[in-house]
Every structure is written in structure tokens, then in C-alpha cells.
Nucleic acid binder design. Structure first.
Lengths: 149, 149
DNA sequence: AACATATATTTGCAACATGCAAGTAATACA
DNA sequence: TGTATTACTTGCATGTTGCAAATATATGTT
């Protein structure tokens, strides 16, 4: 387990598996993609469809349909922008906020469990490292564009 | 950007986007899932279908079909085990090895580019951190099982 | 040997996700 | 006014997914 790609490959796979499981809240069965949408809608302030789709690297047409599902599930609401009625801004409903918060808590619970196998110092080092790595990725131009933050 | 989940969410999303793009080698268009299969078949010694499917957390039926595609693309070969002819072991073809190696190189190139925005010390810290984190995840029982290594 | 049972893999099917091309609706600009 | 641009939605064709059921081989029991 020596090269960089190997380390990241394993990490992201495991993290992906985690995400896959832990997205059923109450009656709602939220897919991984949908949980990413909820996350970003929550994070950004009254984002437009385009903004979120671009952040997530999804085709806008696929995204449009995903949003339709989330609206049917009553987790997201879509409002035409009074300034420019072509754009539609997204927001979480009360239920959507609840679901997003619950997912967030579950993920943090899991991460804390993982951190419990480390010393406090290691935990801080890991968190700091991820931060450094994200910042570096954001600066990179070789791939994937800037993508928000 | 303060909580742990947030950091990991952003990181895995970006890394996922990266993976999405960089899997076209020569005439072969390899999907993300397929690149993970190539990676694991390469890593494990004459693995069975089940072994890889379980490592990757994919349903065996989906996996069976993915392998069929890879065989059609001439990247993987499947041999019935002489000891127990129910099990079929997987191996990369020469072309498959080439593709897997190329993907690996591309990913490492990208990672090195990302690392170029850090000091050497930071790079070492990040790699060490991912290693620690993977080990901790492997120990965790809350989710996702042990899953190889 | 004959039979039931267990295991490894494959196929049938139905649901869903994806992205391109083409459509609609609203704005901008000449 | 008319033409281009932008934001978003629908049609379609393709691909992925996983459950249930089928096949093929192995193992255990009588």
C-alpha cells in the first residue's frame, strides 16, 4: 500500500460505501446523488439549478429530473427568481432540512467512530490534512475545474 | 468548512469527479466502476468473482455483467477453477494490464499535480493521514464491513 | 448410487440514472 | 421588432442496478 493513488482509491471506495448505506430517514429513501444535492442546496444561499448542477458536476438535464424527484418527496422547493424568471432557485423544505441534518449527523457519528481508533493528535492531523488537500485540489487546473470553494 | 463530514464530502466529490474523467485509454472507454474492477483484479491474486464483488460492495449479478463487458473489451479473462469448477477466477489480459497501469499513472500524475501546491512536509502529512484513516476505517464495525485490507 | 442441500455464477425483468438533441420560456441586445 | 442567448424541461436511447429465478457444480446423507 505504497502509492498515493492506492491510498486514495481505498479511502474513497470505503467512504462511498458508507454513503450508500446511510441515507434512509423515516419514510424517505434518499439516494447518494440526492443526498449530495440536499447537502449543496443547504450549503449555498438560494442557489439556482445551474449552480448546484455545476458544483456537483452533473448534467443539467439529469439534475433537473433529480430535483423533480426531491420535490415530489417534499424535500426541496423550487421558486422562480422574481428578478429573472428563467432561473429557479432551490431551497430545502422543513422536511428537507430535517433529512439533510439527520444525514449530516449520521455521517459525523460514523466519522467520530472512525476517529475513536486514533489518538486526538492523529485525528487533528487527519482533519488538517483533508483541509490542505481540498485547498490544493481547488487550485489544480488539471482536472475537474474549480467547482465552488 | 468546519465539520468533519463537510471536509470528507468535498474531498470525495472532487476525487469522484476526477475519476469520472480520466478513464479513456486508446480506443477503450472505461467507466469508473470498471476501473475499480480492473484495479482490484490486478491487486488480488487470481481472485474469484465473489471476492471482487464483495470487496467492491457490488451485487454479484451486477458484477457478473460488468465482467462480461470487460471480457468483451478484452481487458479481463475468466477461467474456471480446476479445483472447483463453480468458481471462476479473474485475471487481466495484457491489454487489461496496460489499461490498468495507464489509469494508475494518470491518477498519480494528477495527485502529484495536486501535491505540487503543498510543501513536501504537507504532502507527507497528507499521505500519512490517509493511511491512518484507512486503517481506522478498516477497524470500524459501524458500517461497510472489513472489505479487504 | 440417488437425493437433497449448498454454493458460484448467470439470465429475466423492472426500475432508475444518464446525457445528448430538441423543445419551451424568458431575457438581452441590435 | 426581430434575433440571439440563457435557464430549464422533455423525448429518447443507452446503460446500471438489484431482486427473483435459473443453471451448473459440489457436498453430504442415506
Amino acid at each position: 500500500m505504497e502509492n498515493a493513488r492506492e491510498l486514495f482509491q481505498i479511502m474513497t471506495r470505503r467512504f462511498g460505501l458508507l454513503n450508500k448505506n446511510c441515507c434512509s430517514i423515516g419514510g424517505n429513501d434518499v439516494s447518494l446523488v440526492q443526498s449530495h444535492i440536499l447537502y449543496e442546496v443547504d450549503r449555498q444561499h438560494n442557489p439556482s439549478m445551474q449552480q448546484i448542477a455545476e458544483t456537483l458536476g452533473t448534467d443539467i438535464t439529469t439534475f433537473s429530473r433529480q430535483v423533480q424527484s426531491l420535490i415530489k418527496m417534499n424535500l426541496v422547493k423550487k421558486t422562480p427568481d422574481p428578478q429573472d424568471r428563467r432561473v429557479h432557485t432551490l431551497a430545502l423544505t422543513t422536511e428537507g432540512k430535517f433529512v439533510a441534518t439527520t444525514i449530516d449527523m449520521q455521517m459525523n457519528d460514523y466519522l467520530n467512530e472512525v476517529f475513536s481508533y486514533m489518538t486526538d493528535f492523529e485525528k487533528e492531523t487527519v482533519l488538517h490534512s483533508v483541509k490542505i488537500f481540498n485547498d490544493a485540489m481547488a487550485k489544480s487546473n488539471k482536472c475537474c475545474g474549480p467547482l465552488s470553494e
